[in-house]
Every structure is written in C-alpha cells, then in structure tokens.
C-alpha cells in the first residue's frame, strides 16, 4: 500500500555561509532557520518560538539582521549568510563578544547569538548609543535570565572601547 501523504516539493539552493559557498537540498516548505540548523549543522542559531517573537534565531542575511524563522529557505537562495559561528570573522572572539563576556552579558547563553547580532547592527548604525538606544535595539530579542541589565552594559562597554 502506498503511504498516505506525498513527498514535499524540493529544490537545491546556493548560499554563502560564513564565507563558504555551498549548495544544499531543501524542501520548499523549510524555514531558513531549520536549514541552517539541521542541514548546515550551524546549531549556534537557536529556535525559541518559530513565530518571530523571541529573536534567538537572528542571523545576518545579505548584510541585514533577520529572524531566520520568519523566512523560507527558498527565498534566501543565492544569499550571503553569517551565523554566530562566523560572527567573529576568524578571530576567536571579536570586541562585542569580549564585552559580553567581560560584563557577564549572558547566563544560559540561548539568546546570546541573537543579542550579539542585534548589538553589532546597532553599533554599526550608531557608534555612541544611549541606554535607550541600546534597549530599543535589542527589544526584538527576549532574554529571560539577565533582566537585560548586563546586556545593556555589554553593548555600552563595546561602544566605549571602540570610540576610546
């Protein structure tokens, strides 16, 4: 007897992921976050809601930060992706990552990759952000451990170190 349910439509997409050109088979219905995690095994990008609410899946696509649970992988075909694994661009830790560690800007670490992308995006736009600017910039990313106190400090410290 044939199984109930047919195979989902599929295709192959090309991506540049953390500087590496690659192609990967996907199902058309697959979200970008699932392709990144399950097919490309870049598991530093997390899933917290599949609804765009929490921001733990934040990555960079073509130079802009996005919530990767909100777009289909197929629509990223040809795109240039940076995940947390490629965040520091070859260094062990970049200055923003260092600031987060120095200021205890994370606890469980689950929201951390998304926070780092939000922080970098802010500092690229606004090198000297106010506290309110920082809070606004990370308001798309939920953290349940820190009360955001040390995340805000981390971003502030990173900014100060860059400008001093």
């Amino acid at each position: 007897m044939d199984p109930i349910g047919s195979a989902a439509p599929a295709r192959t997409i090309a991506l540049r992921v953390n500087g590496v050109e690659l192609t990967t088979p996907i199902e058309d219905r697959e979200l970008l976050v699932d392709v990144v995690r399950k097919r490309l095994r870049q598991t530093g990008t997390h899933v917290g809601c599949y609804n765009g609410d929490c921001g733990v899946c934040t990555i960079s696509l073509n130079g802009k930060i996005i919530k990767s649970c909100l777009i289909l992988a197929a629509s990223a075909d040809g795109g240039d992706i940076t995940t947390i694994e490629g965040f520091s661009g070859g260094e062990e830790l970049d200055d923003i990552q260092q600031a987060f560690w120095d200021e205890d800007g994370f606890q469980c670490g689950f929201c951390l990759p998304g926070m780092l992308f939000a922080a970098r995006d802010l500092l690229e736009r606004n090198p000297e952000p106010s506290e309110a600017d920082i809070r606004q910039a990370i308001s798309g990313n939920i953290c349940r451990c820190t009360g955001y106190v040390n995340i805000v400090r981390s971003v502030h410290t990173a900014a100060q170190r860059r400008t001093s």
Binding site: H46, V47, I84, L93, Q97, W101, F106, Q107, L112, P113
Partner: peptide
C-alpha cells in the same frame, strides 16, 4: 573570573538538547 564556557557560548557551541 568570567563565566566558565563563555568562549563556547559566545560562538554558538552551547550544545543544547536540540543541537
């Protein structure tokens, strides 16, 4: 000191269940 394993968490190598 800073948090142990910070260097791992900061680069996405946490090793949570679904990883």
């Amino acid at each position: 000191t800073r948090r142990k394993h910070g260097d791992q968490l900061l680069v996405g190598r946490g090793g949570y269940l679904d990883d």
